[in-house]
Design a protein around this nucleic acid. Sequence first.
DNA 1: AGGAAGATCTACT
DNA 2: GTAGATCTTCCTA
Length: 199
Amino acid sequence: MRLSPRYGREVEIEFFDRAADAVAMELLGKLLIRFRDNKPLGGMIVETEAYFGEEDPASRASKGGKIKDLMYREPGYILVYMVHANWLLNIVTGPSEKVSAVLIRAIEPMIGIPEMMDNRGVYEIRKLTSGPGKVTKALDINDEFNRYRVNSEDSPIKILYYIDYEWDEIGRSHRIGVSKDLEEPFRFYIKNNEFVSRV
DNA sequence: AGGAAGATCTACT
DNA sequence: GTAGATCTTCCTA
């Protein structure tokens, strides 16, 4: 791992216009910032999952309904929907002619920790954002965010360069909680990071 | 009306 | 670490 040469800069929109697994892997080590009333909340992304199109049985694209339609928008769009009473934060990826998306499963809390703790009603740092439903609750994110695109001026969510990880510092496993998974594992996480939802 | 859905919390072997 | 109850929304019959 090393500090990214682009540290602090916003990730370009082209970054998201690639297959979900590549984006999911490279999103690790990026900063996820959510601005609430001009105050930043967030931290470093430490766990993600890739979801694909209609051929992926675990993907919303294979299920129909309005979430599917939202998934067909341009790369970089925020995609939030509810599962088991939890909002889950995704970012639409590409390439443009093929649908896919990346689920943000966990971040390492860094910015606005007291506020995030209040949002969650949890004051133990390791339990604060170590799961997709925990992340959205800590960052106060819901389906109203579906109208934003991460690189647009008015977006309350931003993705910034921070740390670059090497391939051997990244762990891989099957996606968590899905009833019908693909053969290839599509969950990515930073090894030895204590804020992943599980090892 | 019924059931599934990328989850979380609690309470323990 | 796992087991079971429970959370809410929306799709399909």
